[in-house]
Amino acid sequence: MPAPPTIYIVCSDRGRNGKTLLARILVDHLLIAERDPFCFDLSAPEGALRAYFPGRTALIDMHEAKGREKLFDILLSRAGRDYVIDVPSAQLARFLEAAGEARLHEEAAARGFRLCVLFVVDRDPASLKTAVALEEMLQPDMLVPVVNRFVGTSLPEGVPGPVVMLDKIEGELRVIISHRRFSLRSFLLGDEQEVPARLRPQLKNVLHGVIDGLRNIEPAMSLQSLHGADL
């Protein structure tokens, strides 16, 4: 039986900590699993995520009321598929306010969606506090903390549930994968020709480290739903 459609919200209260790379890996992971996700990029006008998935991404300007309305109108009127929302740190407060006004938690549940937040917990302890407050506000089915090993994190060790680990990609490899024509999905599926042989192990370690964490999310949410149904 296929998993219910899920709204993934990828966010952090800090910038430059790998959030959009995480969203990009998540989209490619869902595509490989034949989940056909649609994306919302809230980084208008830059469009960091849309650059990699132009045909399946809507660029949203959260400064405009029409942009906020468009986001939730599309999201809540077209059920039955996965969605990935890439929220820049500068837009996090506006997104949370708009999500509250749209009653995202209740409306998503009514349409058969699960709600999953992937939050990059930065090294400043205030970032962990933001994650806790965000969970209280959005009431997702699951909040998954993300650790960027290069940046550091204030997340305590041994927290229950899935945790996604992200390593830093630097130098020549970063330049290669940053090109909008470079497909992480193709690399994961065995097309490695665009990456020099000496750099392939590094990229594989980063991608598989993230994907190992992502694969644990759906079973954890399903188990949590079963436990909730038994109460």
Score class of each variant (00 low, 15 high):
20 T>M: 04
144 V>N: 05
146 V>T: 05
71 L>F: 07
159 V>G: 09
224 Q>K: 13
119 F>Y: 15
50 R>E: 09
117 V>L: 15
116 C>R: 15
173 L>F: 09
82 D>L: 07
60 I>S: 00
221 M>L: 15
22 L>P: 02
213 G>S: 12
169 I>R: 00
137 M>W: 03
119 F>A: 13
163 V>W: 12
122 D>I: 00
154 S>Y: 11
97 E>M: 03
3 A>Q: 09
200 R>F: 12
217 I>V: 15
50 R>H: 08
29 H>K: 06
206 V>K: 03
212 D>C: 06
34 E>R: 13
98 A>C: 11
35 R>S: 02
9 I>K: 05
205 N>Q: 14
15 G>I: 00
124 D>C: 03
102 A>C: 06
84 V>D: 00
10 V>N: 02
18 G>D: 04
48 A>Y: 06
48 A>R: 03
224 Q>I: 12
3 A>T: 11
129 K>P: 01
9 I>D: 02
32 I>V: 12
167 D>R: 06
179 H>N: 10
83 Y>W: 09
87 V>F: 07
20 T>P: 02
68 R>K: 10
227 H>Y: 09
167 D>A: 04
125 P>Q: 11
211 I>A: 07
206 V>W: 03
62 M>F: 08
213 G>Y: 11
34 E>Q: 13
32 I>K: 05
94 R>T: 05
181 R>M: 13
123 R>Q: 01
22 L>R: 03
101 E>Y: 14
64 E>D: 12
211 I>C: 14
169 I>Q: 00
44 A>Q: 01
128 L>I: 11
72 F>H: 06
180 R>A: 08
153 T>I: 03
119 F>S: 15
11 C>V: 02
209 G>K: 12
83 Y>S: 06
76 L>R: 08
182 F>M: 14
198 R>S: 11
140 P>N: 07
45 P>H: 05
225 S>A: 14
4 P>T: 06
157 E>N: 08
86 D>V: 02
147 V>S: 10
104 L>E: 04
214 L>W: 04
11 C>F: 01
68 R>C: 07
168 K>I: 10
100 G>P: 15
101 E>H: 11
33 A>E: 11
186 S>D: 13
14 R>C: 05
115 L>S: 12
94 R>A: 12
36 D>S: 07
133 A>P: 04
